[in-house]
């Protein structure tokens, strides 16, 4: 079955420092062999702690950072490097992005109307049509056009600005919208409003979302499928409900058990995961999670576990789940204590 969006082997190493010959001294393996798929009209959530490569993945998809390798298939069209593929740049007509910082992502010297109309105008839409589109979109994101078209970003609140950013992203009629921590900077009540708005827009325009966040609750609330990233790699993916209810990877289990409990008696007394993520400049050998993994065995430090199909749409990269990997006896993961709630 062909997926609507399919990303395969996306990779980006950032060189750090160069020696006299112009060769990089070290590289940060920011995104390594990331593959995932998303279905039309659905939401794919991407979670992970900061520095795990979530945002880099988003920027690679938009070609804001040029990927070292990778292939993106959207609706049968293949984008990527190579002669028979379209350049990733062309995905920009079909994919748009909303950034976390609502203030920095709007030009302070342009009115709201000018900011939204910018995209259509560079795609050849006439000035008046672009302005009409801006008015229409403002209305759709819940901002009265007459009140807002001539305002400047600093005159708006964070939630209003993020609505403008959403309108701006929709202005060139994308099929996919990447929401890179789009609601993370908003307070909870505004967050809920914006999430509802996003759900409405998705239904109205038939959009597909890539929802990137560190907030597990929000991701569970909005996503159909979820992928979990750790140090630039996908460690687990699957349908949101089954992944949250029954995590297969020890890292996912640890993340979920780190969710604050709602009931006082369920409060945890110690951190589920010790230490910080290792430095991506020199990631650990084998499974990148093994130094922090309570279930690690010798094989985990030797071989990198491939992302393996568990059936029912679930994939995991863990030796414990792979037959014949050399792992002794799979142990049950500590079940997440708190049932995650909707925001």
């Amino acid at each position: 079955m062909a997926h609507f969006l399919e990303v395969e082997g996306l990779q980006k190493y950032f060189p750090i420092g160069k020696n006299l010959l112009g060769r990089p001294k070290q590289v940060v393996k920011a995104v390594e062999q990331v593959s995932f798929a998303a279905e039309r009209g659905k939401t794919l959530g991407i979670v992970g702690e900061s520095g795990c490569g979530k945002s880099t993945t988003a920027r690679l998809l938009m070609d804001l950072i040029s990927p070292d390798a990778g292939r993106i298939t959207l609706d049968g069209e293949t984008y990527g490097k190579g002669r028979d593929r379209k350049p990733i740049r062309e995905l920009r007509k079909r994919m748009q992005m909303v950034f976390q910082d609502s203030y920095a992502s709007l030009n302070a010297r342009l009115t709201i109307e000018e900011s939204i109309a910018f995209g259509p105008k560079i795609h050849g839409v006439s000035e008046s049509a672009a302005r009409a589109k801006a008015r229409d979109l403002l209305d759709r994101v819940g901002l009265a056009p007459d009140n807002f078209i001539r305002r400047y970003p600093h005159e708006l609140s964070g939630g209003q600005r993020q609505r403008v950013n959403i309108a701006r992203a929709l202005a060139i009629d994308p099929e996919i919208v990447i929401l890179d921590e789009a609601v993370s900077a908003l307070d909870k009540s505004v967050q809920a409003q914006v999430l509802n708005l996003l759900a409405d827009l998705k239904a109205d325009y038939g959009l597909t979302y890539l929802f990137i966040s560190h907030d597990l609750n929000v991701v569970q609330y909005v996503s159909d499928t979820v992928i979990v990233m750790y140090l630039g790699q996908v460690v687990e993916s699957g349908p949101a409900h089954s992944l949250y209810a029954n995590p297969a990877h020890p890292y996912t289990a640890a993340l979920l058990s780190a969710l604050p409990a709602l009931h006082p008696e369920d409060r945890k007394t110690h951190a589920p995961l010790e230490g910080d993520p290792p430095n991506p400049i020199s990631p650990p050998s084998g499974c990148r999670f093994h130094p922090r993994c309570p279930y690690a065995e010798a094989v985990c430090g030797e071989k990198m576990p491939p992302l393996t199909d568990l059936g029912a749409g679930r994939h995991v990269a863990c030796h414990m789940r792979i037959e014949g990997s050399g792992y002794s006896e799979p142990r049950p993961l500590a079940a997440p204590t708190a049932t995650p709630t909707t925001p």
């Binding site: 920027r59 938009m62 804001l64 920009r92 007509k93 748009q96 992005m97 950034f99 976390q100 910082d101 920095a104 992502s105 709007l106 030009n107 900011s115 910018f118 995209g119 560079i122 795609h123 950013n165 701006r168 992203a169 202005a171 060139i172």
Partner: peptide, 16 residues
């Protein structure tokens, strides 16, 4: 700043 990335993402050329 992100708005430059946003403009680039909407397909604008450097000069624009």
């Amino acid at each position: 700043l992100d708005f430059v990335d946003a403009a680039r993402a909407s397909g604008a050329h450097s000069v624009t």
